[in-house]
């Protein structure tokens, strides 16, 4: 699924990485638990999370995750954007809940990790 499609389906805002919205993600993983995210060995993954802090970006950096969708209007801070840009990440924000976001994307064909 193209990032632009994720944006359209969830009414998301692109916070940074606009130039990469043509990229494809194959799977999605929804979690607020960073230790859990760190167990994944999946490429082309969209991380969907309600945890909006620097550790979410750091976790994505360590796990080689490039695409993060923050749910439920969790606002991304300037510090997070700076870190994300350094690591060529795409950050998205949606007003939808984690549950609704996951449901919509799963229904549209984004695959689960497990």
């Amino acid at each position: 699924m193209k990032i632009s499609e994720v944006v359209r389906l969830t009414g998301a805002t692109v916070v940074c990485g606009e130039e990469k919205t043509g990229h494809e993600v194959e799977k999605g993983f929804s979690s607020d638990l960073m230790s859990d995210v760190l167990t994944l060995d999946t490429e082309n993954l969209l991380l969907i999370t309600g945890l909006s802090n620097v550790q979410a970006i750091r976790t994505a950096e360590m796990a080689d995750i490039q695409y993060i969708l923050f749910t439920r209007n969790k606002k991304v801070t300037d510090e997070m954007v700076e870190l994300a840009k350094e690591n060529n990440m795409v950050l998205l924000e949606t007003s939808f809940s984690l549950f609704k976001t996951s449901g919509i994307l799963y229904h549209a064909g984004l695959k689960p990790v497990y």
Partner: peptide, 15 residues
């Protein structure tokens, strides 16, 4: 609240 504290860190390290 930082997304840690589920007791998965040391097992993750081991792995």
């Amino acid at each position: 609240e930082m997304g840690f504290g589920a007791g998965m860190g040391l097992p993750n390290i081991k792995r």
